[in-house]
Design a protein around this nucleic acid. Structure first.
Length: 207
DNA sequence: CTTCAGATGCTCT
DNA sequence: GAGCATCTGAAGA
């Protein structure tokens, strides 16, 4: 399969959130490739999910990208200072997306740690290394993703997902380990949707 | 290890 | 004006 196509994203959001685990998110920044193995995702579905920005098909300036075609990045600012990356799913007009909540750096460590801490990899504490990319805001910071990248096509040359790490010149696993399924984080306001088991992580990852 | 306060600005009512 | 799909550092256990 290699680079995920628009077809991949044109489907059930919860299923896509699960299957994105273990795949590789690639960011081209200037002439360098940065890559992250996806370890944590969440599904958001406008049709039926009170936690989704587009719940009940409520369209605003912020969430407009989710109403567009699948296979694009929906990026927004949260808490005034952090960005969150989502991958738009489902057919156009069904506002839905997968939030990328965490990963592990596999390519471009120098640049990633510079974006995160302004330091070289060897200068990080073990705590900083352990928690380098375990949150949606951290991931966007590490890959220099902001609202400037909102709406970009995931089949272009800026940001994409692949399940073939050999394309990156890396000998890395192609298969995901068993996944763990839990409630989503930070959506206590969302009534019954709080209890949807729409968060996916590697089994060994608790956080 | 845990909890907790504060940061900070955009978005929607 | 209220609230937010978060992160950090400091302090306590």
């Amino acid at each position: 399969m290699a680079v995920l196509s628009h077809d991949f994203y044109n489907g059930d959001t919860v299923e896509i959130a699960r299957s994105l685990l273990g795949k590789y998110l690639v960011r081209r920044y200037e002439d360098e490739l940065l890559a992250v193995r996806i370890t944590e995702t969440e599904a958001y579905v406008g049709r039926c999910d009170k936690a989704c920005h587009a719940y009940g098909y409520r369209k605003t300036a912020r969430n407009e990208t989710m109403f567009g075609p699948p296979g694009h990045a929906y990026i927004y600012l949260i808490y005034g200072m952090h960005h969150c990356l989502n991958l738009v799913t489902e057919p156009e007009g069904e506002p839905s997306a997968v939030l990328i909540r965490g990963g592990e750096a596999v390519l471009g460590m120098e640049t990633i740690t510079r974006f995160r801490y302004g330091r070289k990899p060897g200068e990080l504490t073990s705590y900083q290394k352990k928690h380098l990319l375990d949150g949606p805001g951290k991931l966007c910071r590490a890959l220099a993703l902001t609202r400037n990248e909102d709406g970009i096509d995931l089949t272009g040359d800026t940001l994409w997902v692949t399940d073939e790490p050999a394309e990156l010149g890396l000998a890395l696993p192609r298969e995901a380990p068993p996944v763990w399924r839990t409630r989503r984080i930070g959506i206590d306001y969302a009534e019954e949707a709080r209890d949807f088991l729409w968060r996916f992580t590697y089994e060994e990852q608790t956080r």
